[in-house]
Simulated assay, not measured.
Amino acid sequence: MAASRMPDAFFDLAAHHLPPERTANPSGGRPPIDNRSIVRALWFVLTTGCRWEDVPGELGCSGRSAHRFLQLWEEMGCWDRLHADLLRLLHQADKLDPDLVIVDAVMVRAFGGGASTGPSPVDRRKKGTKHTLLVDRHGAPLAIRTAGANASDHRQIIPLVMDFPRVGGKPGRPKELPDELYADRGYDSDGTRRLLAWLGIEPQIARRKTPHGSGLGKIRWVVERTIAWLKGLRRMRIRYDRSPVLQDAWNTLAVCVICFRLLHDGDT
């Protein structure tokens, strides 16, 4: 259960990107919930995968209140700013290499359906969602996009690349786009290769119906490890939220947790 307890250092970073704490009403009434308790409850739900109703009262924030603030802070851009800050700190600590990126995806079941879901080709056409990740050479998640489980892999690359973050943390202008992109056979498309080359990115995408042993796996393995870390956050194993805003919030909060663990532990 140690992983379900939010480290104080995580909130210290997140606090700079959250709205100011609300003050108590001098006329009385219910006291406002402090930001630390809200983030603590969100960390607990993300790591344990529990229902909102099962959030322990001792965390200082009910599950329903945490649910409300998760969506509100996503709409305010708080999680995106936290992610950008963590990437900056990773770059500053030489734990991020934005020159080379790797792409891969993971499919999860979507109970109840919702936006960006579709019949899963690997789960008897049950409703599912596909999360496509863009990571750097060390496995740090740079971007994540959600689509229906039946969405073509090669159509996810270009929108994901356009989400490439401009990471600061070192002298000089931040990179607009990576130099190289690696992906497996599921992303094989000559049209995608031409678009990537036009953007100035060298595509290293394995071709279908060719013998294995290209050697690309020696670089691509880090994205599979990051996917394992993502699924280690139990709320990300199954999609329960129909709302695309809530799903985007979980996506960004999950990659923030992974970046934080890379920054402080070197491994998750």
Rank of each mutant, 00 (worst) to 15 (best):
I38S: 01
W79Q: 14
T48H: 02
E21R: 14
H16K: 15
D34Q: 09
A14I: 09
E74H: 15
A14F: 14
D85C: 11
V39T: 10
S65K: 01
G29N: 06
L86A: 08
A15L: 11
T48Q: 04
F69V: 02
V45K: 11
E75C: 15
V45C: 13
R88L: 10
L89W: 05
L86G: 04
S27T: 00
V39L: 15
R68M: 11
L42C: 06
E58D: 09
P20F: 10
P31F: 02
H83I: 01
S37C: 09
P56S: 01
G29W: 07
Q71M: 11
D54N: 12
G57E: 14
D12N: 10
D8K: 12
R36G: 01
G60I: 05
A14Q: 13
P32Q: 00
A24Q: 08
G49Y: 03
R88D: 09
F10C: 12
P26N: 10
W52I: 14
S62N: 07
R51N: 15
P32W: 00
C50D: 04
L90N: 04
P31C: 01
E53N: 04
L42K: 03
S62M: 06
R22W: 00
S65R: 04
C61D: 05
L90K: 08
F11M: 04
G60V: 04
R40V: 06
R30E: 07
F44P: 02
T47G: 02
R64P: 04
H83G: 10
V39Q: 02
L18Q: 11
L82N: 11
A24E: 12
L42E: 07
T48D: 03
P19W: 13
F10E: 09
P26L: 05
P32N: 01
P26T: 04
F11R: 04
S37G: 03
M76Q: 15
A15H: 13
R22P: 00
H67S: 12
F69W: 14
W52P: 07
F10Y: 15
T23V: 12
L87Y: 08
W43E: 05
R88F: 07
H91W: 10
R64Q: 15
D12W: 02
C78E: 09
W52Q: 10
V39R: 07
H67A: 12
A84E: 13
W43T: 06
D54Y: 12
D54Q: 15
G28M: 13
E21H: 10
V45S: 12
G77I: 15
L18V: 13
F44V: 07
L46Y: 08
L87V: 09
S27M: 08
R22A: 11
V55R: 06
